[in-house]
Write a protein that binds this DNA or RNA. Structure first.
Lengths: 339, 339
DNA sequence: ATCAATAATGCAAGCGCTTACATTGATGCT
DNA sequence: AGCATCAATGTAAGCGCTTGCATTATTGAT
C-alpha cells in the first residue's frame, strides 16, 4: 500500500521548504514579514505541491473569513442582479468574497440562510429591506456580525440602510400619473407581508392621491408574488371589474411587464386604453412593448455604497451609517393621459 | 469586567445539558443514536443558548461540508438562472447547500473560483461546459472533488456531462432557417474562446449549410460577449455590409434580443426584412417584439439531473454518468421565409 | 439472579490553520 | 568589542467540532 496522496497541507509545504508552518503562514498572509530568500523557497514549495489553503481551518484559526454574505429575495428575475453585481465588484476589490443565497421571499427561509451564512463565518451580511423578526437582529448582535440593509432607506430602524425612500419615490411617480389626469388608479403590488418596500410603495400612491384630492380608498389593490404571470393575471382581474382603472401602477417592472403583455392579449392598447407603470428600471422595462415608464433606481451606486459601508462596519467595528439615494422617473411610452 | 458573552459552542451546550460534547454532536447529526430523554435535554439547551454549530469547525472535523459549488459564467442575465434554480432545489431536497459564484466568462477567474470553492470544502462542483485547462481537472482529481459539467453533452470528455448536443441543436435550427429559403446567413456568436457551447453552435450552422448545398464559408460571423448591446452592435455591422444576410442566427437569446431591437431602431422589419433566431428560450424571448423563434433548452430538467448525478458521484464515489437531453425548436414570429 | 450482548455515552485525538510569545541572528551604537 | 535593538523565524496553544474506541448502563435469555 503506497501512501495515498491527498491534498497537501501547510505542514507539507513547511517541510519541503525547510521552515516552520508559522513562516509559511506568514508568507501567505503577510509576505513582507518574511525575508525574500525564504519567501521564494516557500513559494516554490507551494507551487510544486499545488497547495491551496484549507479555508475552514483558516477561518477557524483566524476567526475571520473575508467573506460577506448576501441574502436576496430572488435570483429568478433581474431585480437584484445589477445592484448585487456592483456590490460584489466592490467587495472583491477590497479583498472579500461574496456568498449569495436567495430566500424566495420567505421569512423562514431567510432566517435559515442568515444562520447558515453566519455559521459559515461570514464577516458581514447584506440584507434586503428592514422587515424581519427582532430575534434575527438579536442573533446577529450576539454573534457580532454586522449587517447592512439595502433597497430601502429608513434611518431610524435598527440596522443601517443604504437605499431610497420607497414611499417618496412611488409618490412622485403617482403624482406624475395623477397630473396627467388619471383618476381611477389601481396597483399591482408584491406581497406586502414581510416586505417594507412593497408596503411603502402602496403608501406612496395613497399619499399622492390624498394630496391631489383623490380618496386613497378608491385605489384598487392586488397583491401577488413578483412574477410576470402574476402581473398578467392581476391585470386581467383589474380590467374585468366594473370600473376598470385608467392607470395601473405596478410594484415593480416584472409585474408591469406581465400587465403590458396581458393588455396586448386582451386587445387593450397601452397607453391608449390604459396606462401602466413599473418600478426599478430593469432591462426588461426597455425591451417590452410599449417600453415602461418606470422609476429608475441607482442600483449600481446602491450596491457599491452598501459594500463600502458594510466593510467599514466590519473593519472598524463601527455601527454603520445610513445613506439615502435619489431615484428618478424614466419616461417611456407606457404612460400617457387617459384617452 | 464581566465575561464577554460571545457565540455559544458545543461545549457550552454540553455543560448546560450535563453531557459530553460527543453526545451533543450526535444529537445534532444523528439523533436516533441518542436516547430520547437525553436528546430533549440537549435540545432544550441548544434552544436556550441559541446555539448554531460553527460550520468551519464542522467541515474541518468531518471533512464533509454538504455544500456544492457552482461556477456559472454570468448572473447578469437569465441564461443560467432557471437551470441553476432547479439544481439548487434538488440538492436542497437532499440536504445540500449551494454556493454560487460567477466567472464573467473569464477562464482565470473561473479557475480561481474553483479553487476557492474547493478550499471552502465543497463536496462537489457544477461546471458549465467542458472547455478548461487540464491543470484544473488534475487539481480536482488530487483534491478528490467530483465535478459535473452541464449545458453541454460530450460523453468522451474527461468529466461527465449532462446537457444537450449544442452542435446538433443549432444544426436543426439552421436547417429550419435554410428550409425556409434563406441563403445568406449570418451568426452573432458569443466569444468562442474557452466556450465549447458557442463554438459548437457555430459548427452546427456550418453543418446545416454543408448538407444543404450552401458553402459554410459564406456564413458571416461576429463574436461578441453575451450582452444585449453587443447583439445590437453586431447586428448593425452585419446589416451595414454590402450583402446583408437575410437571416441572423444568434448564439443565444440575449444577443437575439439586441439584434431585434437594433432592427427596430434601423427601421428594418423582422421577419419581413430579416429573420432573427435565438437560443435558450429564456423569458426575454417571449417578451421581445417580435417574439423569438428559438431553441428550447430543458433547463429545469438539466438542473435537476445534474444535481442528482453529482450527488450520486459524491455519495457513492462513482465516476459519474453522462446524460443527453433533447432540445426543441420553439416557433414564434421572428423567423419567416425571406421577403 | 447471572451473564453475554447490545445500546448509550464519555474520552480524547485530531482536522489544518493562525498568532502570541519565545528564541535566535543581524545591525548599529558607543 | 560589547550590548541594546530590532528583524526573522520557531514553538506550541488553541479555534469548535467529529468520531474511533473505551466504558458503563440496559436488556433478554437462561
Amino acid at each position: 500500500m503506497s501512501k495515498l496522496r491527498s491534498a497537501p497541507t501547510l505542514d507539507d509545504v513547511a517541510k519541503r521548504a525547510g521552515v516552520s508552518t508559522a513562516t509559511v503562514s506568514r508568507c501567505l498572509n503577510d509576505p513582507q514579514r518574511v525575508i525574500a530568500a525564504t519567501r521564494e523557497r516557500v513559494m516554490s514549495a507551494v507551487d510544486a505541491l499545488g497547495y491551496t489553503p484549507n479555508f475552514a481551518a483558516r477561518v477557524m484559526a483566524a476567526k475571520r473569513s473575508f467573506t460577506i454574505g448576501a441574502i436576496i429575495p430572488t435570483m429568478e428575475n433581474a431585480i437584484f442582479a445589477r445592484g448585487l453585481q456592483a456590490f460584489q465588484e466592490e467587495i472583491h476589490l477590497r479583498g472579500y468574497t461574496l456568498l449569495v443565497s436567495s430566500s424566495a421571499y420567505k421569512p423562514e427561509v431567510e432566517e435559515e440562510q442568515i444562520r447558515t451564512l453566519v455559521a459559515r463565518g461570514a464577516d458581514g451580511l447584506l440584507l434586503i429591506g428592514h422587515d424581519r423578526d427582532d430575534r434575527i437582529y438579536d442573533y446577529l448582535d450576539r454573534q457580532k456580525v454586522p449587517a447592512m440593509v439595502a433597497w430601502s432607506f429608513i434611518p431610524e430602524k435598527r440596522m443601517p440602510s443604504i437605499g431610497f425612500d420607497n414611499r417618496q419615490a412611488m409618490k412622485a411617480l403617482a403624482e406624475e400619473v395623477i397630473g396627467l389626469g388619471h383618476k381611477r388608479l389601481a396597483t399591482i403590488s408584491g406581497i406586502t407581508q414581510g416586505n417594507d418596500r412593497a408596503r411603502l410603495r402602496i403608501e406612496g400612491i395613497r399619499d399622492a392621491m390624498r394630496s391631489n384630492g383623490l380618496s386613497p380608498d378608491t385605489l384598487m389593490t392586488i397583491e401577488t408574488p413578483y412574477e410576470i404571470e402574476n402581473g398578467a393575471e392581476a391585470f386581467r382581474q383589474l380590467m374585468a371589474s366594473d370600473h376598470p382603472p385608467s392607470a395601473v401602477l405596478c410594484g415593480n417592472d416584472v409585474l408591469a411587464v406581465g400587465a403590458v403583455r396581458q393588455a396586448e392579449l386582451m386587445g387593450l392598447r397601452v397607453p391608449g386604453d390604459v396606462s401602466i407603470t413599473g418600478f426599478d428600471d430593469i432591462e426588461l422595462a426597455r425591451i417590452v412593448h410599449p417600453a415602461l415608464t418606470t422609476l429608475h433606481v441607482p442600483h449600481r451606486e446602491m450596491g457599491r455604497k452598501a459594500a463600502a459601508g458594510l466593510i467599514e462596519m466590519i473593519e472598524s467595528n463601527a455601527s454603520g451609517q445610513s445613506i439615502q439615494l435619489e431615484t428618478s422617473i424614466v419616461t417611456r411610452t407606457s404612460l400617457a393621459a387617459p384617452g
